[in-house]
């Protein structure tokens, strides 16, 4: 094994790029779950965002508009889920799964004429002298703008959820919809907004995949990233900054695993690949064991249908 052949600075930079799609999707899902709604359609919203963003970027030639398009596509699809679960009171788990299947099919249909096309390149942010700083430069200051925007979004979600009145109301809805309703808050409207926000962020994550990380459109290109995002929310026990750490950890393990292999390390890589999922399972076990602080971190009304008459 030749560990010296791994460029650790580039590895950390690659890890941030690799983690951004799941980071965006997971922080969106966190907002949704904090409002008490379980949307299992993240994969479907991501892939829809990937094709919408790709199509818009190719048509307009602007990656920025592409990202907006991706977010919009994800939001629109998530509102289908919102309409079904919040207005027509359908089962959230079943509807979320259906949304994933629907999104995969819809994106394949929309993407028929976009296979094999290259999107306009997303320019790296020019940070001038900052990017020339040794060590920190390549790690922190040579990325495309979306990396920084994704971290800003995490900060913003944290600030809104825990430092504003609106965030308090959103969390209250997630803990007890009945209580929030009794206090005069419009539970359905709050939840619909949260769902749309989650959809937009998932779509943004998908667009990042098709516009920056890969960059191209291929059917089924999210390849399970949406499910990882869902696991990540649990892993982070519904806290924004932990989602950031978790996303870099999940993304980092994949990149690290591939780098170790490329360096010729002789170890069964399957173990490294599966380790994030094992950690997630452990967190789930801890939560359902009912012991310790972590067991109380899930929003109390998560996944429960609310109707004003009950």
């Amino acid at each position: 094994m030749d560990l010296s052949s791994i460029n650790w600075l580039l590895l950390i930079a690659a890890l941030m790029v690799g983690a951004t799609p799941i980071l965006l999707a997971a922080i969106g899902e966190l907002v949704v779950e904090r409002s008490g709604v379980l949307n299992l359609g993240v994969e479907g919203m991501m892939i829809t965002g990937a094709i919408c963003g790709f199509a818009v970027a190719v048509k307009t030639g602007s990656p920025a508009l592409g990202f907006l398009g991706g977010a919009l596509g994800g939001a629109v699809l998530s509102l289908v889920f919102g309409l079904l679960t919040q207005v027509f009171l359908s089962n959230q788990v079943a509807t979320g799964l259906a949304l994933t299947l629907f999104g995969l099919g819809l994106s394949a249909l929309m993407g028929q004429s976009y296979v094999g096309i290259r999107p306009p390149a997303t320019p790296k942010l020019d940070l001038g002298p900052l990017s020339d700083i040794p060590v920190l430069g390549p790690i922190l200051f040579r990325h495309d703008p979306m990396i920084y925007i994704s971290i800003l979004i995490v900060a913003l979600v944290w600030a809104v959820l825990f430092r504003t009145r609106a965030g308090l109301i959103l969390r209250a809805t997630g803990e007890s919809a009945e209580a929030a309703h009794a206090l005069g808050y419009r539970v359905i409207r709050i939840r619909l907004l949260a769902i749309a926000c989650g959809g937009a962020l998932a779509g943004l994550g998908g667009a990042y995949l098709s516009l920056v990380r890969v960059p191209q459109w291929t059917e089924g290109m999210t390849a399970g990233a949406g499910w990882i995002a869902l696991a990540l929310v649990v892993f982070a026990s519904w806290r924004p900054w932990r989602v950031l750490i978790g996303a870099y950890l999940f993304g980092g393990l994949t990149v690290l695993q591939l780098n170790l292999q490329a360096a010729g390390m002789k170890m069964p890589v399957e173990y490294l690949s599966m380790s994030p999922y094992i950690i997630t399972i452990l967190v789930l076990v801890l939560i359902s064991s009912g012991r310790g602080r972590i067991s109380t971190s899930a929003p109390a009304a998560l996944g429960r249908t609310f109707h004003a008459s009950t």
Partner: peptide, 27 residues
């Protein structure tokens, strides 16, 4: 030869990461 096993026939993101890892190590 530096060989990376992706354990998939098709996962664009992982394939891109694998290529990047190999390139960063001098391939």
């Amino acid at each position: 030869f530096n060989i990376v096993w992706a354990y998939t026939w098709f996962d664009p993101a992982k394939e891109a990461d694998a290529a990047q890892a190999l390139i960063e190590q001098g391939a």
